[in-house]
Amino acid sequence: SYYEILDVPRSASADDIKKAYRRKALQWHPDKNPDNKEFAEKKFKEVAEAYEVLSDKHKREIYDR
């Protein structure tokens, strides 16, 4: 789930989600993982997609249904 990707509970606040996104984006940024760039790019995209949905109140409500 998007919550698992960002490592936050379903009850996470918008601020918690933003902090988790920043932490995970740094962790999986391809430039930070030169030895495993392809895998890092995949993870980085997953993190971005999760944040896009969970950071938008309307999209998150739909996702949580």
Rank of each mutant, 00 (worst) to 15 (best):
H29Y: 06
P9D: 10
N36H: 09
S1A: 08
L6K: 00
R60D: 02
Y2A: 04
A12P: 03
E61H: 08
I17Q: 00
P30Y: 05
D16L: 07
V47P: 00
R23H: 09
K18L: 15
Y63A: 02
L6D: 00
D31Y: 05
D16Y: 04
E61N: 07
Y3H: 01
V47Q: 01
K19H: 12
A48W: 14
D56E: 04
A14D: 14
I5Q: 04
A20N: 03
K24G: 05
V47A: 10
A14Y: 15
E41C: 13
R60H: 03
S55C: 06
W28P: 01
K18Y: 15
K37Y: 12
K37A: 11
K57D: 12
D64V: 01
V8H: 00
K32T: 13
R22G: 10
E49Y: 07
W28Q: 02
K57V: 14
A50C: 01
Y3S: 00
H58F: 10
Y51C: 04
H58A: 15
K19C: 12
E61S: 08
Y51T: 01
V8M: 04
L26G: 08
I17C: 02
I5W: 11
D31Q: 08
A48N: 14
A12V: 04
K37L: 13
Y3M: 00
Q27E: 13
D7Q: 10
D64S: 03
A25V: 14
R22E: 15
N33V: 05
L6M: 05
K45T: 07
A25E: 09
K19N: 14
Y2H: 05
Q27F: 12
K18G: 08
Y51Q: 01
E4R: 09
H58C: 14
I62L: 13
S11Q: 11
D15Q: 08
K57N: 12
L6G: 00
K19Q: 14
H29C: 10
E61P: 04
A14Q: 14
A50R: 00
A40T: 05
A40R: 05
E41G: 08
S13W: 02
D7N: 10
L6P: 00
F44I: 06
R10F: 13
K59I: 04
E61W: 09
Y2P: 04
N36G: 06
Y63S: 02
K32E: 10
K42Y: 12
D7R: 04
D31L: 11
K19W: 09
A14P: 12
D7G: 15
A25Y: 15
N33F: 15
F44K: 04
R65K: 14
Y63F: 05
D35H: 13
E41H: 10
K24L: 15
D15G: 10
Q27W: 07
H58P: 04
P9K: 08
N33T: 05
D7S: 11
A12K: 02
P30I: 06
A50P: 00
K32Y: 14
Y21N: 02
A20W: 01
E4H: 10
H58W: 12
V8I: 14
A12Q: 00
L6H: 00
S13N: 11
Y2F: 11
D56I: 04
I17P: 01
R60Y: 02
S55D: 05
V47H: 01
K32N: 15
R10V: 11
A12F: 02
P9Y: 05
D31V: 05
P30C: 06
I5L: 09
K42I: 14
K59T: 07
R22T: 14
A12Y: 01
R60V: 02
D35R: 08
